Simulated scan of single mutants.
Amino acid sequence: SNFRIVGFTAEVELPELVEIGQAHGIPVMADLGSGALLDTADFGLAHEPTVQESVAAGAAVVCFSGDKLLGGPQAGIIVGQARYVEPMKRHPLARALRADKLCLAGLQATLMHYLRDEATEQIPVWRMIATPVEELDRRARRWRRALARAGVRAEVVDGRSTVGGGSLPGETLPTRLLALPLPDPQRVAEALRRHDPPVVARIEEDRLVLDPRTVLPEEERALLQALLEVVAG
């Protein structure tokens, strides 16, 4: 689902589809995919339609993911008008496809963060999206100093973070990268992936690159330990 069609393209907006459906007695189902509950435009990204907007537009049924931009466990969620949702709950397939208790517990915990207005502080994907560049710069420089003490040369450079995750195709955010000029960055990248815990870096312009936007603060110690063991060790 993570793609973009460019060029001379057009699509019928959901409110217009709902109006056509109502005129002909046909319920309209909207498949959102990303499950966004926050407006991505508030974070410098293109606007991703939210679940609330689709429901308000009059869609009879709205489908979306429990992971992706919602930020919870992988699951499929259906909301909408009771006369359409209730028969789905009673359908024999619902028993085969229903989420287990662990998934429901994770989903409940995730949604509670939205209800408490703390999604950008508690849900990993939104923590990463909401982190300002100034904070990313401070963290990247802290990593560089830690590596320098072990004799490892690194630079802090401008970069872009790709959101990805099955949503916001082509959208990026500004970031600050830790770049390591190494003789064989491919070998080091492979060694990091084999490390426990694994570290997935990328290579740009023959340098091993790490993006602090994709690393939560509580993961920094493990990351630096892996870098020191693989690069300096």
Rank of each mutant, 00 (worst) to 15 (best):
V55E: 08
L104E: 11
A105C: 07
M88Q: 07
P73D: 08
L228I: 05
S167H: 13
C63F: 15
L17E: 00
E13C: 05
L192C: 08
L37F: 15
R98E: 12
P174T: 10
V62G: 03
L14Q: 02
A232Q: 11
D42Y: 02
V125G: 03
A94H: 12
F8H: 07
R145K: 12
R193I: 05
L192W: 04
A191K: 15
S167Q: 13
V200T: 04
G80F: 11
A94T: 06
V199P: 01
L102F: 06
A105M: 08
A57S: 14
G25M: 01
R213P: 03
I77G: 01
L17P: 02
P217C: 11
R4G: 00
G233A: 07
A99F: 07
R139E: 09
A201V: 00
R4W: 01
F3K: 06
E48M: 08
A222Q: 05
M128T: 07
V215P: 00
R127V: 12
V163F: 05
Q225C: 09
G80S: 08
R116V: 05
A226I: 09
M128S: 09
V51W: 01
R127W: 00
A94F: 13
G58E: 02
R116A: 14
P183H: 10
A232I: 03
P27Y: 05
L17I: 08
E190D: 14
Q52K: 10
I5F: 05
L14E: 05
E229A: 14
A56V: 01
D137R: 08
E11Y: 02
S34P: 14
G165I: 04
R213W: 05
E13G: 04
R90E: 11
A105H: 07
E135Y: 02
G165H: 12
A119V: 13
G7D: 01
A30P: 01
L192I: 07
M88C: 13
A130G: 07
V79N: 12
R153G: 06
D100Y: 09
I77Q: 02
E205Y: 04
F8N: 08
R95T: 12
G165R: 14
E11T: 10
P217W: 07
Q186T: 13
T40Y: 07
R98S: 12
L178S: 04
R202S: 11
K68F: 08
L216C: 10
H24P: 00
P124N: 00
E16S: 08
L37Y: 15
I20G: 00
L37H: 15
P132L: 06
A23E: 00
M29A: 14
C103A: 11
K68H: 15
I129M: 09
R138C: 11
E190K: 14
V215M: 08
K89A: 13
M88K: 06
P198E: 12
P27R: 01
D31I: 12
A56R: 15
A109P: 02
A60C: 11
T172V: 09
R141M: 01
G33C: 07
V133P: 00
L227Q: 04
T175G: 07
G80H: 04
